[in-house]
Nucleic acid binder design. Structure first.
Lengths: 155, 155
DNA sequence: CCATAAGGTTGCGTTACGAAACCATATTAA
DNA sequence: TTAATATGGTTTCGTAACGCAACCTTATGG
């Protein structure tokens, strides 16, 4: 009856989804990338229930996506900051954003555009590339046979 | 009381997660990328409950990530195939896979390695790049102020 | 000494998920 | 012609997760 989990799945996508594959975790990470650090700010900016937020923050801390820092200043006591592991979700978030912008454009107003702080230029469209930098589609890739065997039963 | 949904959120990440942000959808898309097309095959390869699979396949079809094709051949009657929209989740899946491989390496055996069908070379590590192809981190980007305003309340 | 804020915890009702059983249609096998 | 089997579901039911609101505890501020 327990919700299926994939901790020990041989599929790295399944293992990744096990950590950030629920409704809220990636949005929390996204907010953290925007600079949000405090409990109340996550709660208000995301509109998430407090008990769920507690649960998600703990899990993200357990999984070392965030770390909880004790800052003993005026009422505000803790901050949740991205770790390197959390920051490395950047491509995942960007890939989702670009896909969302392309296929579910915002009904009102233009899509949020990310720009390079240094040059002011927009961020390039993410693409899967071969060793020489040429774009690859799903059909252009294959999986080496021996690793594919392990892959057939993620659950 | 209803699970929160983000259909009309101004955040494209939230809208994307609304379509593929649950435990199963991305894994179904991944299986489809491996070539799986039939109901029973999804069911057996993923180990997903049948009623949940029905629900997810319908939602993915509704969202035009998959399309349901009637192939009237021996018992097997329908196929679920990726649309262009579905195939364009490739970077998302690859980003998740690379993140999973990096931070949660498979306990037994090497990570599944994807290779370019043409050259046999491994797929390059995904990265967010500026207009000139230089890598960008979270700290290197900013959001134009006007679009950021809409972004603050995804829920 | 009271108000306010941060960061939770608890209780409760609703919804989603998972497992197994059941079902309808179509093909094959005897 | 009947039985077995496969596909693609639907139904039932128990458990787990979610959402909301109320409450609690430990600061700080006035």
């Amino acid at each position: 009856m327990a919700r299926k989990r994939f901790d020990d799945s041989s599929c790295s996508v399944a293992r990744a989804l096990n950590e950030v594959g629920d409704w809220w975790s990636l949005l929390i990470v996204l907010q953290a990338m925007y600079g949000t650090r405090r409990f109340v700010d996550f709660q208000q900016e995301l509109g998430i229930a407090r008990n769920i937020l507690v649960d998600r923050l703990c899990r993200l801390v357990d999984n070392q996506v965030l770390r909880k820092v004790d800052v003993g200043e005026h009422g505000s006591r803790f901050e949740y900051r991205l770790t390197d592991k959390g920051r490395d979700l950047f491509p995942v978030v960007i890939a989702l954003r670009q896909w969302g912008d392309r296929y579910n454009p915002c009904p009102d107003g233009p899509p949020l555009d990310l720009r390079d702080r240094r040059t002011g230029q927009p961020v390039r469209q993410l693409e899967v590339q071969d060793a020489d930098g040429n774009p690859l589609t799903v059909r252009d890739v294959f999986v080496s046979e021996e690793s594919l065997d392990d892959q057939q039963n993620p659950a």
